[in-house]
Design a binder for these strands. Structure first.
Length: 662
RNA sequence: GGCGGGAUAGCUCAGUUGGCUAGAGCACACGGUUCAUACCCGUGGUGUCAAGGGUUCAAAUCCCUUUCCCGCUACCA
């Protein structure tokens, strides 16, 4: 028996902090279409997806909801899984990072790396630069000061474990250079190289003590494994990897041995850095081969501007499926997503796409073909071999299709691959016009030609439907059932005429895709939107009142420390944007009789015009510094929320410029 | 600020190593057809290929300058 080539594909694991919207769902569908295609090509496929369930955010959210975090993630993980199922994704393995075998292996991996010195325990004392919010190893400090800003680093309370990245940097750079296909799309490769690898990597903090909801570091109480080692390891623990070499077996088979390294990690472009730098280095440290390819796919965005839960305009897969059906949604997300740029999704765009491509071109073709076969030939199209030159073009297109589709799929150009398949159906419609079966049907002497024409059509449709399977499996099934046909292999398609001559098609063709009335769709969407915003507004109002923030405590200071700082009220008398900077505003601030120039990173929250006239709190004796080349002689004080939103501090009653703040 | 990528028909984009009247899909308009889900087929563009300059027999394609967008990253007192 011929040994099948293996193909191991993973998606990123979805974070269980909430219901996944269509963008997350897209990744699962994209992955599914790729693996289904590989299976058709005869690969032995392993497709793994799952959920990432630890972390502070979940700890907080579950506490807010008043439930145990495990219960919380059980619910959401279940919901995610059910959406993946709804979308017909054919995963072989759905891993959860709270699975026991995963947790155990993560602990072992952590310990192994620690023992061999790739993970070391670091301390924040003397290494934490508060303003930079960065941790440094002593070797990174310049004269004991922050290598970034040159200021004193603060002693900090938390100790943590670090992964030595620098040790493997050169090896990784070499790997990326010698494997041009490693990072896809290639433009992302430069970003990783120029921004991280070439300047040199800082060691990565891989543990936390600030929250509990994580995998404990088993040799050091109080520490939990931070997201990287926990989440990324899923790609190997899901195959039964064991650091000791005693890999878990599934049905007596060592899946890790069989499937690793992964052929493709499919991820969102936002997490490329973790998958192309941290993960390969972890694997090098574990002395394991690197994945062959990492594809950071673009995103599906909604074009009606800000997508927000409170506005209720978030598009969810299950809502879409209710209106359009699974395959239409699969088709849309796969077709609308180009290779490198973000795609756009909206209710009316889907409706349009479904109408023109699926209802008109494909659905109507199948319908009219079956109707004619019934009407003129009692449902049986035989290949009578009455060939005319016009047939040739159709045959050529159909038989050439598999190679074209394979080429596109190999390059991960899924959208283009679908277009190739659709071209078959478009050609079929044209063929009907060229051959005019309704004319042939009126002439008894043309009956054999008519039969041949319809046979050719059915043959082409069966080929097209077979090629469609990776993208729209249910539709393929429906078409084949109606035509009473077997799915064709790619090789069969290359030979025109493998559909069994004389097969009877169904009496009553079923509508494959309903035409959508755009107004109708929009009305339904608005209904869904209304429900969403009611659900969320109640939720949000509660939150607004209850929301509090906890931040990491800094070391205690003395009163003398405090007295070193001088705060005064200043009046902003002029303000302009700092050109060539995205966030900076440059203000002239009158403090008493003196005017200081102060640069602040608040352009996103205040316009230059609205700054003028405000009385604000200023730290005046801060050492001047240059920001984006502009001198700044102090600091405007702001409150900052946990999303980075800023609000200027202003005196509650009118105060003169220069008034001391104490 | 650093690095990278863009700017082509109303919309979404193709345009390979420079080569003949610059393309596709959608939308729109008109014509044809009737087997079919008011469907399908055909026809229809004066687009300064962002602007300016250069190289060349020849530039959307190569080089320089400018403007504007986007991504990553840094800064954000």
């Amino acid at each position: 028996m011929k040994e099948k080539k293996k193909f191991y594909l993973t998606t990123a694991i979805a974070y269980t902090s909430g219901k996944p919207h269509i963008g997350n769902t897209y990744e699962a569908v994209l992955a599914d279409s790729i693996v289904r295609f590989k299976r058709q090509q005869g690969y032995d496929v392993r497709f793994q997806t799952g959920t990432d369930e630890h972390g502070q955010k979940i700890e907080i959210k579950s506490a807010e909801a008043g439930v145990d975090p495990k219960k919380f993630v059980d619910d959401i993980s279940g919901e995610i899984k059910s959406i993946w199922d709804l979308m017909n994704t054919s995963y072989d393995k759905f891993i959860r990072t709270t699975d026991k075998y995963h947790e155990k292996q993560v602990q072992k991996i952590f310990k192994k790396l620690y023992k061999q010195g790739d993970i070391y325990k670091g301390f924040y004392e003397g290494m934490y630069c508060t303003p930079c919010e960065s941790f440094f190893t002593s070797s990174q400090l310049v004269d004991g000061k922050c290598p970034d800003c040159g200021r004193e680093c603060q002693p900090a309370k938390e100790e943590a474990y670090f992964l030595k990245l620098s040790k493997y940097t050169d090896k990784l750079i070499k790997h990326i250079k010698t494997h041009p296909e490693f990072i896809q799309p290639e433009s992302r490769k430069n970003e990783m190289m120029n921004n991280f690898l070439l300047p040199g990597l800082q060691d990565l903090c891989v543990s936390r003590t600030s929250f509990k909801w994580g995998i404990p570091v088993d040799f050091d109480e109080g520490h939990v494994v931070y997201v990287w080692i926990d989440a990324l390891s899923n790609y190997i623990t899901g195959l039964g990897y064991d650091t000791d070499g005693n890999n878990a077996l599934e049905n007596g088979e060592d899946l890790f041995e069989k499937y690793w390294p992964a052929d493709l990690h499919l991820i969102g472009k936002d997490i490329l850095r973790f998958h192309t730098i941290y993960w390969p280095i972890m694997l090098m440290a574990l002395d394991l081969p690197l994945p062959k390819q990492i594809f950071g796919h673009p995103w599906l965005l909604q074009n009606d501007g800000k997508m927000s839960k409170s506005k209720g305009n978030v598009i969810y897969a299950d809502d879409l499926v209710k209106i359009f059906g699974v395959d239409a949604v699969r088709y849309f997300v796969l077709h609308e997503m180009p290779f490198e740029n973000d795609g756009v999704i909206s209710w009316d765009l889907i409706a349009e796409r479904v109408n023109s491509d699926l209802a008109n071109t494909l659905g109507n073709l199948v319908n009219r073909t079956i109707s004619m076969t019934n009407k003129y030939l009692d449902g049986v199209a035989e290949n009578k071999g009455v060939i005319e030159p016009v047939d040739e073009e159709l045959k050529t297109l159909v038989t050439a299709a598999p190679e074209k589709v394979i080429t596109k799929m190999d390059a991960l150009r899924v959208s283009d691959a679908i277009s190739e398949v659709l071209a078959i159906f478009k050609r079929c419609n044209k063929y009907i016009d060229e051959t005019e079966p309704w004319v042939l049907g009126k002439d008894e002497s043309k009956k054999d030609r008519l039969s041949t024409v319809l046979y050719n059509l059915i043959e082409s449709i069966v080929s097209g439907a077979s090629l469609l399977e990776a993208f729209m499996p249910e539709t393929t099934e429906k078409i084949l059932t109606q035509l009473n046909a077997q799915k064709k292999s790619f090789d069969d398609i290359k030979t025109f005429g493998t559909y069994m001559s004389g097969t009877k098609v169904t009496d009553k063709p079923e509508i494959l895709f309903m035409r959508q009335d755009i107004k109708d769709v929009i009305a339904k969407a608005e209904e869904i939107t209304a429900v969403q915003s009611v659900e969320n507004s109640t939720e949000d109002t509660v939150k607004e009142y209850e929301e509090v923030m906890d931040i990491e405590p800094k070391a205690e200071i003395t009163f003398e420390d405090f007295e070193k700082m001088q705060f005064q009220i200043g009046e902003i008398i002029a303000c302009e944007e700092v050109k060539k900077s995205r966030k900076l505003l440059c203000s002239k601030v009158k403090i008493g009789s003196e005017v200081k120039q102060i640069v602040s990173g608040i352009k996103q929250y205040y316009t230059a015009e609205e700054m003028v006239g405000k009385k604000v709190m200023v730290l005046v004796n801060l050492k001047p510094a240059k920001l984006a080349g502009v001198l700044s002689e102090g600091m405007l004080l702001c409150a900052e929320d946990n999303k980075g939103g800023l609000a200027l501090m202003t005196p509650e009653k009118s105060m003169p410029s220069g008034a001391v703040v104490c």
